[in-house]
Design a binder for these strands. Sequence first.
DNA 1: ATAATAATAGGAGATATCTCATGTTTTTGA
DNA 2: TCAAAAACATGAGATATCTCCTATTATTAT
Lengths: 221, 221
Amino acid sequence: MNLLKGLEKAYYLEAYTIQSLFSFDISPFIQVFQFDKGDFIIQEGTEPEYLFYMVEGKAKLYVTHKNGKVSLINFLTPPIFMGEIELLNEEKYSKSIQTSSKCICLGISIEKCKEKLLADAHFLKYLCIFLSNKSTAHSTKYTKHQAYPLENKLAEFILLSSHQSIYKEKHTEISEYFGVSYRHLLHTFSQLSEAGIIEKIKTGYKVIDKKKLQALADEIK
Amino acid sequence: MNLLKGLEKAYYLEAYTIQSLFSFDISPFIQVFQFDKGDFIIQEGTEPEYLFYMVEGKAKLYVTHKNGKVSLINFLTPPIFMGEIELLNEEKYSKSIQTSSKCICLGISIEKCKEKLLADAHFLKYLCIFLSNKSTAHSTKYTKHQAYPLENKLAEFILLSSHQSIYKEKHTEISEYFGVSYRHLLHTFSQLSEAGIIEKIKTGYKVIDKKKLQALADEIK
DNA sequence: ATAATAATAGGAGATATCTCATGTTTTTGA
DNA sequence: TCAAAAACATGAGATATCTCCTATTATTAT
């Protein structure tokens, strides 16, 4: 992790200005962080220091269970707040965020800024909308995931995440995302292959029968 | 559903004043609703008219899937906002809320009040905290539910919901809450019985071996 | 370039959970 | 109070998913 200064800092502050989210001058309170691939932006159990706003990169929100299982709760892509829960409630971080590529984050010092933020209607309104969208997305995901077998959810996911009919996500990540074992994910992929819906290629899978895939996805509400 | 007037209305407004959540006079915008057991406070697909704040009763938040499955997302108990997501985003209701006993709700007219609410830092701060707690609770529930078998989750739930070692929830509801079949819930109850941890009685179950039950619950993060 | 690490792949058997079917008991509404 | 509806109970067989194991590629770091 690097704290950017000088020209680099200025560049990102200008390219991704977030002043419009606040009704007071936020610039004195912002740092620009650069996280390398694999770095932790936030670690479970540590004390929050910054409210982060990711402007570039891609990260993963994780939680680790007692039994050693890891749940990938979500993929995080800009623009997104991170650590806003801990800004609102005096709590340690309960989840981890790890980058999956280089990430640029604006960090607003909680210590210096908390009171101002919690009194700023403009920011609070934005945050409320952000939180409510997050909540909706989350509850949609999980109620779906509870009500349908992996085959349907995977069909939906392949359609969403493939480009030009090519799917190339990492099995290890996706199995954690769906909360199923690696083995079972593989098994479901080969089912789809055997049904002639997708086809294994060097770099991943190719969608052969989009209609059937869509039909599987459409079984989900 | 009844709109209360006169003395009844005055009684609830006084008993459960929510003026402290707002920095403007909210009283002109509040109605008092009484819902009977089984009534829908909110129905999927309908247009939001009120931001509700439940002060008495108990209700259930549901979603219905294409495949006919129903997920009981949560039990709602006072004090709680309902319909706040739809206040923030211009959307129809995406879930249903049905009472499981008589409920008293304060209803704030969205049409008359939306602008004032979304500019009130005091209210927005409260709402942010509410939403963030909801989000945390939700994500905790679902990551747990994905990572542990019913036996553990049920053990935790029995401990939480039993009084004086007596558990008496409805199987039909609880199976929907956990997103498992009725059959499987029953099966898990009899496992716990066979292990001598609980015992079936007329009105429900009695906790026999609290330590073992706690141990099962403790396997969960 | 090479060793270490992470990701892919698939077999085999166990277990958690589901669906369907059927009967009994309790609760509820007219 | 009686019939209908909801809730409880349980068997049997199917299926979704898991764990453990063992190889074979890719990637990454020194």
